[in-house]
Design a protein around this nucleic acid. Structure first.
Lengths: 107, 107
DNA sequence: CTGTATCCGAAATGATACTG
DNA sequence: CAGTATCATTTCGGATACAG
């Protein structure tokens, strides 16, 4: 007895909420440091970014590499699994671009 | 000054939450009655289904056709806009199918 | 720089009962 | 059949302060 009724259901559960897709997108070109990532996802709070990253690590989408330096440096990157999800979401991003005007006009 | 930072951001805003994608999917093959739709989206409550449908109507994704009969009959269907979004989400559904086992195993 | 901890208000969702 | 109304609860998310 699966938790999910179909592939779409499962996919939505994994990339839930309003942030994970954008984080995936921001990481698609290689490792990004925490502060950089924060700027790359406008509007997200420090707290939410950490929470989402931790969930994405737990899901196996994201890898976290810690450099024990002073000052600290931490880089986040996509796993193969994360890349595959990001690829699957690309058409959604294109759809959003194409219909941006219409979407902006919504209430 | 747009509300959205990129196409993906806009798309996520439109199909937000955990239900809209599944409703889109359930409507992809033609008009569906309310009760039918409810059964097609397992786990959704009557209340949430209505709320989501109203939002999707407001976004122009869904059309609602009311037949003034006794007993009442109401059919929901996708607009062209809704179909285009459903198409853009198809790869996500396939991704979910492919990785279902792994996703099911997550905490 | 990269986090953690706490608090609090807002929003999402579920349960239940009721209506035309 | 297709909704509405109301209430309770759960989750989300922002602000702030603090720590290694």
């Amino acid at each position: 007895m699966g938790k999910y009724t179909c592939g779409l259901d499962a996919a939505i559960a994994v990339m839930g909420g309003k942030w994970k897709g954008l984080i995936l997108f921001a990481l698609q070109d290689g490792p990004v440091r925490f502060g950089e990532l924060r700027r790359a996802v406008p509007g997200i709070s420090e707290r939410m970014l950490i929470l989402q990253l931790r969930e994405m690590e737990a899901s196996g989408l994201v890898h976290c590499e810690v450099y024990h330096q002073v000052p600290p440096k931490v880089e986040y990157s996509l796993t193969g699994f994360g890349h595959s999800l990001n690829t699957a979401m690309a058409p959604l991003g294109e759809w959003g671009e194409e219909h941006m005007e219409r979407i902006e006009a919504l209430p």
